[in-house]
Deep mutational scan, measured.
Amino acid sequence: NMTTNERRVIVPADPTLWSTDHVRQWLEWAVKEYGLPDVNILLFQNIDGKELCKMTKDDFQRLTPSYNADILLSHLHYLRE
């Protein structure tokens, strides 16, 4: 019986294949993992993996503070390698 913190996010390895639900799961995981403040996951609700991967730093900064944008982008970049 796992707690929420221990729950593994199971999403496709390639972020471009993510559904909007996968994006939400990834964001929820990242918020907990990195202790990100002020991430409004609802702002990302219509973004799927293909859109997420096209987003620039400016795009991320429209949805979340700069600090969060940096961490989310670097993790996304890591996943795409």
Rank of each mutant, 00 (worst) to 15 (best):
V39T: 11
M2H: 09
F60C: 03
Y67C: 15
T20C: 14
R80Y: 02
K57Q: 06
L73K: 04
P65I: 03
E6Y: 08
H77Y: 04
Q25G: 08
W18V: 00
Y67E: 13
V31P: 02
S19N: 11
L63C: 05
H75W: 00
R80H: 14
R8P: 06
L79D: 07
L52W: 01
Y67M: 06
M55A: 01
H77F: 04
P15G: 01
Q61Y: 09
I41E: 09
E51L: 06
H75T: 02
N5A: 09
I71E: 06
S66W: 04
N40A: 05
Q61K: 13
L42H: 08
D21E: 13
V11P: 15
G49F: 01
N46V: 02
G49S: 01
D38F: 02
E6T: 11
E51A: 12
Y34E: 05
E28N: 12
D21T: 09
D58I: 14
R8A: 08
W29A: 15
T16P: 03
F44L: 05
V23R: 00
D58S: 07
Q45Y: 07
A13W: 07
V9A: 15
C53L: 11
L36E: 00
D14F: 03
H22D: 11
K54G: 10
D58H: 15
S66P: 13
T4W: 12
R7L: 14
L63Q: 03
D59Y: 01
L79N: 04
S74W: 02
T3Q: 10
S19G: 06
T4G: 10
P65V: 11
P12G: 06
D58E: 14
D14W: 01
Y78N: 15
G49T: 00
A13D: 15
L42N: 14
Y34S: 04
T16L: 14
N68W: 03
Y78L: 15
P37D: 10
D70V: 05
N68Q: 14
K57H: 09
T16R: 08
P15I: 05
S19L: 02
V9H: 13
T4L: 10
A30Y: 02
N1A: 06
P65H: 15
T3R: 09
W26M: 00
I41A: 06
L76Y: 01
M55F: 06
F44P: 03
G49H: 00
S74I: 03
E33W: 05
I71W: 04
V39G: 03
D21Q: 08
N40P: 06
I47Q: 00
L17E: 14
L36K: 02
D38H: 09
I10M: 13
V39Y: 04
F44A: 05
D38Y: 04
D58V: 08
Q25A: 13
G35W: 04
Y34G: 04
H77R: 13
C53P: 00
W18E: 00
I47L: 09
R8K: 15
D70A: 05
N1T: 12
N68L: 02
S66A: 14
W29M: 10
N68T: 14
L42A: 12
D59V: 04
D38N: 11
E51N: 08
T64R: 01
Q61F: 10
F60D: 01
D58R: 12
L36V: 04
A30M: 11
V31K: 14
C53D: 03
E51H: 07
D48V: 03
T4F: 14
V11F: 14
L79R: 11
T64A: 10
H22C: 04
P65R: 11
L63Y: 10
P65Q: 04
V23K: 00
D48E: 08
F60Q: 00
L42E: 11
A13Y: 08
S74M: 07
L63R: 06
V39D: 04
Q61S: 10
M2I: 06
T4I: 14
W29S: 15
L27F: 02
K54F: 04
L79W: 12
A13M: 10
A69L: 01
N40T: 05
P37H: 12
Q61M: 14
G49P: 01
E33L: 05
C53E: 02
K50D: 11
T16E: 09
L27C: 02
E28D: 06
K32I: 12
S74N: 13
N68F: 02
A69C: 05
D70C: 02
D70T: 06
I47D: 01
M2N: 10
A13S: 14
E6Q: 12
L27K: 02
P37E: 12
L36C: 12
M55Q: 00
Q45V: 06
I10N: 15
Q61T: 15
L17Q: 13
Q45C: 04
N40G: 03
P37G: 10
R62C: 08
S66D: 05
R62M: 14
R24N: 07
G35M: 09
M55R: 02
F60M: 15
N1K: 07
R80V: 09
H22M: 10
D48N: 12
A13L: 09
L27Q: 01
L76W: 03
V9C: 13
